[in-house]
Structure formats: structure tokens, C-alpha cells
């Protein structure tokens, strides 16, 4: 807090100043000074490392030498990389869709139940977040194993043992459960804002319940749907631990491939290029998502007024 104190005493004497002088003074204002420690951290722990990665992706080549974009060319030419990239996207899409299908009714229910029940439902969403990533992954390793409790239960009702751990399906199950809170929370926040009377108004104007839902409720909930889905999609794209523990090397996802390049093959250039691609894809998605949600927010804003 020493910074607050030191610059705080400088005070802001109110004396006439030219417009240019004022802009300069604002740049070096007390308020800006307060952000400097954080900026230093961001610069050293994010800016500099990311710059290093970008640099390595265009200067570090497995053979020792190569042309500017060789690592990127390699990424898109290698069959395996394309397969993994596609698999990563597909997995993220499936997980997002599954999360949405589970989260939407749950979040809807949260808006209609009494406050006591709502508190319980909210606690159930927040609790897994507190439990810790490793604990949840560990639990899924136990639950999904070939002789684990889920297969026991399936056997009891006469369904053959399923091979879930070490397969993409195991990864998807784990990711869905782990990601659920990230979509329920924003979805609930946006559904809560919808004026319940609008549904009644639609009904009184002759809409069937289904029409009232699809024409009124669903469009109004779109901003929350987009925001929540985006979080899950982006987090899944970058997930590393769950695929590593529940999946198999034969069906690895992009983050694992990146780690492999860096850790096992010491191919920093290729790993870095893959990381940059992952980042660009993520930023693109966030940009598209925020445009989409702004569009639907404008639409629903009109409805709310």
C-alpha cells in the first residue's frame, strides 16, 4: 500500500493549466501511478513471455534453421495436427452443447423456485468450484475406470462394461461436469433479468406456451446463452489436465500436443506456433461471441424497455 500513501500526498492543486499540460498531467496522474505495479507484473509475467513465444515460433526450428513461417506451415501440413485440431474443436463443441442442454433447464428452474431452494441450487453450483480441479479429476478417474462404480451400475442393469477412461467419451464426461458451473452462473444471471410478466403478456395476446417460450423467453435469454457457451468453449479448447488424466495419447487434444512438443521433443518453435494458433482461435471466438451477444443484447434490450 506504500504507493497509495506516497503518491496520495502529492495532492491535486487546482491551478490553471493549458490543455496540453493537463493531458500530460493526467497520464502521470496519481491514478495511473496506482496501476503501475500491476502493469509491471503483467509486462514481466505475460507480455514478455508471450513475446518470447511469438518470437520462438518464427525463429526456432527443429532442424536448426528454417524460413519465417515454417513452423506454421508445418502445423497445417502435418496430417496429425489437422486431425487433432479438428478433434479439439469437435470435443469443445460437444462439451458446450451438452453443458447448455443441462444448464438451461437448471438455470430456468433457479429463477422460478423459492429463495430457500434457490440458495441450495446455487450452493450446488458453487461447491464444485471450491473443491478443486485435482480432486474433481481424481474422482472421475475412480468413477470412470473399467471396474469402477459406473460400470458396476451399468452391469447391474445388464449393460456391458463400457470403456470410458482412456477414451474421448471419458474426457467429454469429465469436462462437462467440470465446466457446468461456468455456464450455469452467467445463464442464471441473464435469465433472472427477464421480466416474468412478458411471458404472461405473450399468453394473453394469444400465444401458446411453446410460442411464448420460443418467441419471447428464448430470444431474451440469448446473451446469457452466448456468454456461458463462450466461457465453456474457450476453457475446453485450452484444457489440459482432464484430457491428460481421462483421455489417451492416441486421442490427444491440442494442448497436450503443445506440451508434448515443448516437454518431450524440446521443439519450442513448433510448440510456440501451436500455442499462438490456439490463442488466435480463442481471441477470434471471443470477438465473434461478444459481437453476437451485443447484437442479441440490443434485441432483447428493445424487448425489455
Amino acid at each position: 500500500m506504500s504507493i497509495v500513501q506516497r503518491v496520495g500526498h502529492a495532492g491535486a492543486p487546482s491551478r490553471p493549466a493549458g490543455p496540453g499540460g493537463r493531458a500530460l498531467a493526467a497520464l502521470f496522474s496519481r491514478e495511473f501511478a496506482l496501476t503501475i505495479p500491476a502493469l509491471v507484473l503483467l509486462g514481466f509475467a505475460m507480455g514478455y513471455p508471450l513475446a518470447t513465444i511469438v518470437e520462438r515460433s518464427v525463429t526456432d526450428f527443429p532442424g536448426g534453421s528454417g524460413a519465417f513461417l515454417d513452423n506454421y506451415k508445418w502445423f497445417f501440413e502435418e496430417e496429425l495436427n489437422r486431425v487433432v485440431l479438428l478433434r479439439t474443436f469437435r470435443t469443445a463443441a460437444i462439451v458446450t452443447l451438452a453443458c447448455l442442454l443441462i444448464a438451461y433447464p437448471y438455470a430456468c428452474a433457479m429463477t422460478v423456485v423459492g429463495w430457500r431452494m434457490r440458495l441450495v441450487m446455487q450452493a450446488a453450483v458453487v461447491a464444485p468450484l471450491l473443491v478443486g480441479t485435482m480432486t474433481r479429476n481424481y474422482s472421475w478417474v475412480i468413477l470412470l475406470q473399467d471396474k469402477g462404480p459406473i460400470n458396476d451400475a451399468l452391469g447391474a442393469v445388464g449393460l456391458g462394461p463400457l470403456h470410458m477412461i482412456g477414451s474421448l467419451s471419458g474426457v467429454i464426461i469429465g469436462l462437462v461436469q467440470i465446466s457446468l458451473p461456468f455456464i450455469i452462473l452467467p445463464l442464471y444471471a441473464s435469465l433472472r433479468e427477464i421480466d416474468g410478466r412478458l411471458m404472461g403478456a405473450a399468453r394473453s395476446l394469444g400465444a401458446t406456451p411453446a410460442q411464448a417460450f420460443t418467441r419471447v423467453y428464448l430470444p431474451l435469454s440469448l446473451p446469457g446463452v452466448v456468454a456461458g457457451s463462450l466461457v465453456v468453449f474457450v476453457v475446453t479448447l485450452g484444457s489440459f489436465i482432464t484430457p491428460a488424466l481421462l483421455g489417451s495419447p492416441q486421442q490427444s487434444l491440442l494442448p497436450q500436443l503443445i506440451a508434448q512438443q515443448v516437454n518431450q521433443l524440446l521443439a519450442w518453435g513448433r510448440g510456440s506456433a501451436m500455442g499462438v494458433i490456439l490463442l488466435l482461435v480463442t481471441l477470434l471466438l471471443i470477438w465473434v461471441g461478444s459481437r453476437a451477444s451485443r447484437g442479441s443484447a440490443a434485441l432483447s434490450g428493445g424487448g425489455r424497455r
Binding site: L42, A45, T52, G271
Partner: peptide, 28 residues
């Protein structure tokens, strides 16, 4: 504060949340 570039600093400060964690890991 009312200093220029406030929005940029804010975006920068929340950026670690959206960068894929694997990339953060290998970069560090």
C-alpha cells in the same frame, strides 16, 4: 482515474483470464 488508455489497461489486466492456460504455462 481519467487517464488516456484506461480501457487498454483494464483489458490487459483481465487478459490472463482468457489466454489458454497451456500457452501461459509454456510461455512462463
Amino acid at each position: 482515474g481519467r487517464f488516456p488508455g484506461r480501457g487498454a489497461v483494464m483489458a490487459l489486466a483481465t487478459a490472463p483470464m482468457i489466454i489458454p492456460i497451456v500457452l501461459v504455462a509454456i510461455a512462463l
